[in-house]
């Protein structure tokens, strides 16, 4: 009984602290924008370094989707719709979600470990004592970089999955479909609002992953175990949050 109360109150206070952390980040964004160089460096760490995994996964996801769809749709004589289905699935759901999950694994974990180590080695304290606010110089720039990087990565991922290599490769080059039909079908059925939804989701996921990663890193106990736990729970918590938020956002934007 008292145990469960303690667990719940711990959970609530953790949530509360995470909220405060988010407010602090948001209020540090303005000053952080004055130092674009730090942000550029973080876009490199967060975005550019995730490019390879995003491109390759995008290709394979598009290919496997197209292959599965082609087999089934062929039975109804509707194999022209392969492109539409791949495009809608990727743009509405798979693009932001899979890119977000990969991002959490690739960039979020690295971020949590980095911040956790900075804390453990007193680098954040040293900044504070030099009258430099780590929120502005360390946390906010990474947050902004995540917000910029994930939508871009999602766009690249989706394009890989739909056009360049994934769906197009299977439906047109392998199964002998017509490239013109492939594109015109997609063009006729994907709406601008689908794209908007895709990028809104990606932006939200980017923020949430970075928020969780940095909160975990910032509050990690200054030990090797603490840092490794922070990394693990970053990946777990942010993956679950992405899936849950995806549901919520879809429900919001479709109704």
């Amino acid at each position: 009984m008292t145990g469960s109360i303690a667990i719940i109150s711990n959970l609530l206070s953790g949530l509360g602290r995470a909220q405060f952390f988010l407010f602090n980040i948001l209020s540090a964004i303005g000053p952080a924008l004055l130092r674009p160089r730090i942000i550029v460096r973080q876009i490199y760490m967060i975005g550019v370094q995730s490019l390879v995994i995003i491109v390759i996964s995008g290709m394979f996801i598009g290919m496997v989707l197209a292959l599965q769809m082609a087999n089934t749709l062929d039975r109804f004589g509707a194999e022209d719709s392969v492109g539409v289905i791949v495009a809608l699935a990727v743009i509405r759901e798979l693009g932001p979600v899979v890119a977000g999950l990969l991002f959490a694994g690739r960039a979020g974990s690295a971020l949590a470990a980095e911040i956790g180590l900075m804390r453990a080695t007193d680098q954040l304290s040293a900044m504070e004592m030099m009258a430099v606010d780590p929120m502005r110089r360390v946390v906010a720039p990474r947050f902004i970089a995540g917000l910029i990087s994930l939508p871009l990565l999602t766009a690249i991922f989706s394009l890989m999955a739909i056009g360049v290599a994934g769906g197009h490769l299977i439906a047109v080059d392998l199964l002998g479909g017509d490239s013109g039909t492939y594109w015109s079908q997609i063009h006729a059925n994907v709406e601008l609002s689908d794209l908007r939804q895709c990028f809104v989701k990606a932006g939200v996921f980017g923020m949430v992953v970075n928020w969780i990663a940095m909160y975990q890193g910032y509050n990690a106990p200054p030990t090797s175990e603490g840092v490794s736990n922070a990394t693990t729970s970053t990946v777990v918590v942010s993956s679950l949050s992405i899936l849950a938020l995806d549901f919520v956002l879809t429900a919001f934007m479709f109704s």
Binding site: A155, I156, G163, W183, H187, N189, E191, L192
Partner: peptide, 14 residues
Amino acid sequence: GVAAVFVMTFRVAS
């Protein structure tokens, strides 16, 4: 990334 966004808007979406 921006190019991908553009292609998506003009080529993919109507």
